[in-house]
Amino acid sequence: MKPAPFSYHRATSVDDAVAALTQGAGMARILAGGQSLVPMLNLRLAPLDTVIDISRVDSLRQAHDDADSVRYGALVTHAAFEDRRVPDGSNGLMPFVAGQIAYRAVRNRGTIGGSLALADPAADWLTTLVALEGKLLIAGPEGRRAVAAADFVIGSYLTDLAENEMIEAVVVPRRSATERWGHYKVARKTGEYAESMAIALVDKARNYARLVVGATDGAPLVLEQAAQAFLDGRTDDALRVVIRDELLAAGREFSAARLTMHTTVAMRGLKGAAAK
C-alpha cells in the first residue's frame, strides 16, 4: 500500500502554490495536513503527478480576530481549535467540533482547509461551517474570491474549487453572545466519520434558529422549515414530522433507517441548543 510516484513542490507562498497548481493542469494537488490525501495516495486512489506542499507557508497557519468575524488560515489544525490556541467566535462550538474529529494524532496534523477542500459529506467542518454561515477565501490565478460555505460544497467530494484554486482561509462570523448551539453526531465508533450529524443554533433573544444536518450523502442540508417550526413552538412528534418531511424533500433517497437516524439527530441537535 504505497503511493504511485509523484513529484514534489514545496510552495513558498500562496501565489507560488497557485502557480504550481496552474502548471499542474489538473494533475497537481495541494498537500495541507495530509490526513486525507496521503491515505488516498497510499491506496492509489488519487491519481496525480505533483504534490504541492503548502505547510511552509506561514501565513496559512495564522488566525486573526476581527470585529465581526474570525479568520482562520487554511492550515489551522483541528488540535489548534480543540486546544483553543486560536480565537473562537462560535461560543465554543468550533473547539467542541474539533475535539470530535478522528483521533488526536490526526487532529495534530489535519487542517480545516484540507478537510473542507476534500468535501467529504461525513466530515465535521463542512456541516459546522454551513451552520455557522462561514465563508471560504479562495486563491486562484485571477486573485482572491470569497464563497459562502453553503455554496462552496456542491455534492459529495465536489466543491466549487477550480483545479487551479486553493482555500486560503476560512472566515467565520462572530455569533451573537446570546446564541446557543446544539450538536449531535452519531458514528459507529469514536473518531469514525459521522453517520449523521446535526448542528442547531438557537438565539431565543433574537427569535432565531438554524438547523443543519450533515453526513447526508451530499452537501449539508439546511432545514429552514424545521428551524421555523421549532421557533413556532413545535416539539416532539409535531417537530419530528416537519424535520422528516424536509429531509425527504431534499431528494437524497435516504433509506428508511437513514431517514430515522437523521430525523432523530436533527431533533437532538435542536434539543441540545434549546436546553442551554
Binding site: V38, N42, V51, D53, A105, N108, R109
Partner: peptide, 8 residues
C-alpha cells in the same frame, strides 16, 4: 503524536 504512515 502523528501517524507516520500518512506523513510524507
Amino acid at each position: 503524536p502523528a501517524r507516520a504512515c500518512i506523513a510524507l
